[in-house]
């Protein structure tokens, strides 16, 4: 199946200390990496952080293959960015930019590889709890996030199909006919998902 595990490593059951670490701590790590990406100015620091994160990832027992599966979809884009920035701003800056993106991706994968989706949802529900009094519904908020995460690989897959058929048929074709199927499929998919949720009594507002 296309794109499974795309961008974020899927949960791998295990007992490592990272699996057992509190969710909040793992989230802080991801969040911190996102923040650090503009504080860090030396590519060697970025490289060290990336190496450390990769080391942690391997300690979880999820394996190199999972790690590579998460990074692979970005590899081509990162290469292009790297070469472009190298040409524009020089090698150290280019290395820093690319490494910082990788740091963020690996950190996010570290979280998703060691946390079951249900635990993540519980975490979101708890974090969004205080907003209940403004009329928010944390359960439905968490559910929407889960559906979104599940849909990214599916839709990225349909985009890739479009690109492939564009290559196969050439670009002289009407661009509307080329990309329209992505959106038609996506909307149909969204409705099916909505109907399936409704049928299971999930996702409807509770009064």
């Amino acid at each position: 199946m296309r794109g499974h595990g795309f961008l974020l490593a899927n949960y791998v059951p295990g007992q490592s200390f990272i699996h057992r670490a509190p969710l909040a701590l793992k989230f802080l790590l991801v969040f911190g990496c996102g923040l650090a990406s503009f504080i860090v100015v030396d590519w060697r620091v970025s490289l060290a952080v990336l190496a450390g994160l990769c080391g942690l990832f391997l300690l979880t027992g999820a394996g190199l293959k999972k790690l590579w599966a998460a990074i692979r979809p970005l590899a081509a884009v990162l290469l292009v960015i790297g070469v472009f920035q190298w040409w524009m701003l020089g090698a150290p800056t280019a290395a820093r930019i690319v490494l910082n993106i990788l740091v963020c991706v690996v950190a996010a994968s570290l979280l998703t590889a060691t946390t079951p989706v249900q635990r993540l949802l519980d975490g979101v529900v708890r974090a969004a709890g205080p907003f209940k009094r403004f009329g928010a519904d944390p359960e439905r908020f968490a559910l929407t996030i889960a559906i979104m995460l599940r849909s990214i690989p599916y839709i990225a897959g349909t985009f890739a199909d479009v690109r492939d058929s564009a290559r196969a048929r050439g670009l002289e074709r009407n661009p509307r006919a080329l990309i329209l199927p992505v959106f038609i499929t996506s909307v149909a998919f969204a409705r099916q998902t909505g109907e399936a949720l409704a049928a299971r009594g999930l996702g409807e507002a509770e009064d």
Binding site: Y11, R150, Q192, T193, A196, A199
Partner: peptide, 15 residues
């Protein structure tokens, strides 16, 4: 179209 989670166990837990 019915299984909304990546694995069966997670889907059952969602239910």
């Amino acid at each position: 179209s019915q299984l909304v989670m990546p694995t069966g166990r997670e889907d059952v837990e969602l239910s």
